[in-house]
């Protein structure tokens, strides 16, 4: 099977209503896709559904990871297959250090793949290397997961986790939001360092800024639960210049009700 994440006609809903209304998107390893779209369009919902969040019910469509339909799998099984989600709102786990958490996560993944556990020593080395890459203080590893973190620290911690867990497909949900200028550059450098033929990215963002640092291969626009336009990196510039309203008008689509 080719190394690809394929989203086909994906429909998903909460108890109240349908949010994803037939999303199609194909991400190959080595590619960086940007996903943009107005607030409430369903970007985070797409990310969550890909990862297996229990709040959403998939009513139609499929998601193939290297040919396997992952929609029946538990979130951890998807993680073991190499899927990673950097959360828009990372969750605090007080009392659990980043180091302990990440070692447990990495070992769970290795175990599921029939690999040996990483030794405490090897893990430490790996973690320190990634902290250095992201210009983070080593003491950060001893802090409790997202507990009392600033907005920017949370986003950086997500990238750190991605770097350690080494996924095949990474979805970054607004990882650039809330970062100061320097942090944005560092995070972008981190993403670029992890970019390569072995990995695909879906970068959800509202801002062209990050895309100036991490040049995407494709840009998609999600509106009201559907991808309404796709294009190259120049689409991000066009969006920035015109805004969603005009793009929608050009497509002959109605502006979704404000959220």
């Amino acid at each position: 099977m080719s190394e690809v994440l394929e989203i086909r006609n994906l429909h998903a809903r909460t108890e109240e209503r349908e949010i994803l209304k037939g999303v199609n998107l194909t991400i190959r390893k080595g590619e960086v896709h940007a996903l943009m779209g107005p607030n409430g369009a369903g970007k985070s919902t797409l990310a969550y559904v890909l990862m297996g969040h229990p709040a959403y019910e998939v009513t139609e469509g499929e998601v193939l990871l290297n040919g396997t339909n992952i929609l029946e799998l538990d979130p951890e099984e998807r993680a073991h297959l190499g899927l990673f989600l950097a959360f828009q709102y990372p969750v605090a786990v007080p009392g659990v250090t980043i180091a302990n958490f990440l070692r447990a996560a990495l070992n769970a993944k290795r175990k599921a793949r029939g690999e040996d556990e990483i030794s405490v020593f090897e893990f430490r080395k790996l973690l320190m290397e990634k902290l250095r890459m992201l210009k983070m203080d080593p003491s950060f590893a001893g802090r409790y997961v997202n507990d009392g973190f600033s907005g920017g620290e949370k986003k950086r911690a997500e990238i750190l986790q991605m770097a350690v867990l080494d996924p095949e497909f990474a979805i970054l949900d607004e990882t650039d939001s809330g970062l100061d200028i320097d942090a944005l550059r560092i995070v972008a450098q981190g993403i670029n360092a992890l970019r390569g033929p072995e990995r695909g990215f879906l970068i959800i963002t509202h801002y062209k800024r990050i895309l100036d640092h991490v040049r995407p291969d494709f840009v998609h626009v999600l509106v009201d639960g559907r991808v309404v336009r796709s294009g190259g990196p120049e689409l991000a510039d066009e969006l920035e210049a015109k805004g969603y309203e005009e793009i929608l008008r050009e497509l002959g689509l109605a502006t979704p009700a404000a959220v």
């Binding site: 990862m51 297996g52 969040h53 229990p54 538990d74 979130p75 951890e76 998807r78 993680a79 073991h80 990673f84 989600l85 959360f87 990372p90 969750v91 605090a92 786990v93 958490f101 990440l102 447990a104 996560a105 990495l106 769970a108 993944k109 599921a112 986790q161 867990l165």
Partner: peptide, 12 residues
């Protein structure tokens, strides 16, 4: 919390 941790590969 549980979903966040599971998304990283831990079982429920």
């Amino acid at each position: 919390q549980v979903f966040y941790l599971r998304s990283r590969g831990l079982s429920e």
